[in-house]
Amino acid sequence: MTVKQISVFIENKVGGLATITDVLAQAGVNIRALSIADTSDFGILRLIVDDVFKAGNALRENGHIYSITDVLAVAGDDKPGSIARIVATLAKEGIGMDYAYAFFAKKENLAYMIVRVEEMDKAAKALRENGIHLAGEEEIARL
């Protein structure tokens, strides 16, 4: 089970991020989680949103370059050691992570870790077999 992440190109300059979050705000898109990877002159803004379709349309209409990537949304209890458990499970299977970031959902009292790996199926299987919950699109949209 995977969720869709939107990755948006941003120029590394003051206001670069604001332009994009503004587009999404105007379109009524709710941002669940956000992370930025950057070099000295550009970056990739990675977003988990409540409505990927709406977000994509708004970005395209405003001339932004983006791509959609499948990522794992791994849930854990909001307590010490839950992220450590997720990471250890993947490491044990020899699965390297491309990137990861996390957010907290108050309503569910859960911590979610967004993970991108090369071997998505293998990772999903390993996590499930270790009793770790993977969230789907609907669960994320509901948050």
Partner: peptide
Amino acid sequence: EMSQEMFSDSLGKVAEKE
């Protein structure tokens, strides 16, 4: 100008193309 063809989710790949 960044284009769809050049962009991907991977920072490494984009930096490599650059």
